[in-house]
Design a protein around this nucleic acid. Structure first.
Lengths: 226, 226
DNA sequence: GTAATTTTTGAAAAAGTTTTGAAAACTATC
DNA sequence: GATAGTTTTCAAAACTTTTTCAAAAATTAC
């Protein structure tokens, strides 16, 4: 069955939607604000997102816009009554429908079913994303995008390759020989210190997250998340 | 489904109407002023025209009068509150309804549905559209039409194919090999730099939206929206 | 504490990639 | 088979990345 993400700061609202949605057979996940919604969306894929407009931390519009950068998941916005501007804005940002609060759960479920049916066909061909996140760091292998606190970090090809390899093998002690042969190729016959220089560049690019790359003296390096 | 022509100089307005109209299942074409509307109407037939009154080049009244000379397509006029109220209200131009700006998209859609029902509905056959939009850029895969702020962008076959493939895989890092084998075919054995040249041509065609095509050094390209 | 070893760093040289413009080759269409 | 439009080729220019190397810093061993 379809997976739903419900984003609302009010517990009561989430609870009502969950109850109805589960009754209809949907699987439900929850997020309490836009920021959390984005994080969850990076990691998991949903068939539909129901998102409140007014939320602390990060409002529904901004979250919608952000999620649209890497996902095409349909979104239904929940907005306060009479906020015509909000509705329009929601659509502009790529939401697929809107429901005005206070809403009838039954009506919401009908909209959910309609949107899923309408967008359902294409979901099959959808590309599965491959993303790693840790605190404010996010590594999208398929888009080749690294962000720190939502800000994009530009890196050079070698940095990406080195970093991706380390992240994919996070928690493992990687010898210099292993790193060089995996990132440069087994036939690399350059200078001893090339790897060090790239680690340096990578650390510089990662800023505060350079803490994740630890030196294993006499051995190599390890990427670790605490 | 029914075909709509939206005529307004503001792309924001066109975009909102397009979003709602497509949600309702209509096919939407756009024109940015009265002059363009007339040209398009000479070439194509619509089930309904939504036209703004205040436009540069040729205003809505004049355009409406002109189109009426060779078409009977129903027209809904959009006007700012109080603007030329009498004229519109008198229906002397032959418009079928009018909506005051700022309008509720939902209300507009109800009027659209009402007018279409009243005037006998569609003439053409049903075509399922497959359209991607981002800001003023719209890519209609099934019609093979790309528009920027409502203006049609003419491209060569290769440009279309390359662009469509990139848009369909938006947000993904596409290697040169992948692009070449998908757009040219796995058996392409031409020059290394052919892809680059086509990217160049495509960027030129896309004007301001060339920003969406980002170079991934050492890898390939990515189409991204933001 | 000192010497030996290893890693980090900065800067410059070398290598590599992408962009661009222009011309040549190709392909329909009349 | 001439023409107009499209695609491909190619090489120079613009730009970026990688590598090298030696000095400095850090760590370890004695």
């Amino acid at each position: 069955m379809s997976r739903l993400l419900v984003v609302d700061d009010e517990f009561r609202i989430r609870q009502i939607i969950r109850k109805y949605a589960e009754f209809e057979g949907y699987t439900v996940e929850e997020a309490v604000d836009g920021m959390q919604a984005i994080e969850i969306c990076r990691k998991e894929e949903f068939d539909l997102i129901i998102m409140d407009v007014m939320m602390p931390e990060l409002d529904g519009f901004s979250a919608c816009r952000e999620i649209r950068k890497f996902r095409t998941t349909p979104i239904i916005m929940l907005s306060a009554r009479g906020e015509e501007y909000d509705k329009i804005h929601g659509f502009e940002l790529g939401s697929d429908d809107y429901v005005v609060k206070p809403f009838s759960p039954k009506e919401l479920m009908m909209r959910v079913a309609a949107v899923i049916k309408r967008t359902g066909g294409e979901q099959g061909e959808q590309v599965k994303k491959d993303v790693f996140t840790y605190e404010g760091l996010s590594v999208d292998f398929s888009a080749r995008i690294v962000t720190i606190d939502g800000k994009r970090i530009e890196m050079t090809p070698k940095e990406y390759e080195l970093f991706f390899y380390m992240v994919k093998n996070k928690g493992l002690a990687l010898t210099r020989e292993k790193l060089i042969s995996e990132v440069w190729g087994y036939d690399f016959f350059g200078d001893e210190r090339t790897l060090d220089t790239h680690i340096k560049l990578l650390r510089k690019s990662l800023g505060e997250y350079s803490k994740c790359i630890v030196t294993l003296r006499g051995v190599g390096y390890r990427f670790e998340t605490n």
